[in-house]
Amino acid sequence: MNVTSSTVEGITVIEASGSIDSKTASEFERNAIAAIQGKSAAIINLSNVDFLSSAGLRVLLMIYRQIKAQNGKVVLVGTSEEILDIMANTGFLSFFITAETLEEGINTLKAA
């Protein structure tokens, strides 16, 4: 698991790679929450995430709640069909905007 954050066109982008499971969710949470402090928009790039457990879903929900408290939006980018299916089946997908590319995610947030 590797987590990085950057700012692209004024928007916080969190990029994760590897599996987000019970062993790695705390690292993902720590890095992601630090990156979004006081932010009202974020993009989470999951294009290099190969597995997302319930612990990972919990962290995504925490991120959503923090951004939502700032009246903001979260865009998930590059999410695999398998992860999208899991999120749809659990109702989590309704909290997020999805985009295929980082550019599409940035444009979506700028238009909001």
Rank of each mutant, 00 (worst) to 15 (best):
G56N: 10
G78R: 00
L109S: 02
Q70V: 08
N89L: 14
T4R: 13
K68D: 14
A99C: 15
S47P: 00
G72D: 05
L84R: 08
A55H: 06
L102R: 09
V49L: 04
A69G: 11
G78L: 00
I86N: 03
G72H: 05
E82D: 12
I11C: 08
M87P: 02
G56L: 10
T90L: 11
S26F: 04
G105R: 01
L76R: 02
I43A: 02
E104R: 08
E103F: 07
E100Y: 01
L57C: 14
A88E: 14
K68E: 12
S17C: 11
A41C: 08
L76K: 02
E9Q: 15
I11P: 04
T24K: 11
R58E: 06
A69H: 08
F92L: 13
G78D: 00
L60G: 11
I44L: 13
T101N: 02
S5Y: 13
I11W: 05
M1P: 07
Q70R: 12
T101C: 05
I97C: 11
T98K: 07
S94H: 10
T12C: 12
I63W: 06
E103Y: 07
A99P: 09
L93Q: 12
V77S: 03
S53I: 07
M62T: 14
S54E: 04
L57K: 15
E15F: 01
V75M: 04
S26H: 10
S47E: 03
K110T: 02
N71L: 09
I67W: 03
T12L: 06
R65I: 07
L76G: 03
L102P: 07
F92D: 01
L52R: 01
N31C: 15
L57R: 13
A35P: 10
A69L: 07
N48I: 00
N31Y: 10
D85Q: 14
A69I: 06
A25V: 04
S22N: 15
G72T: 03
N89E: 10
I44E: 00
A55L: 04
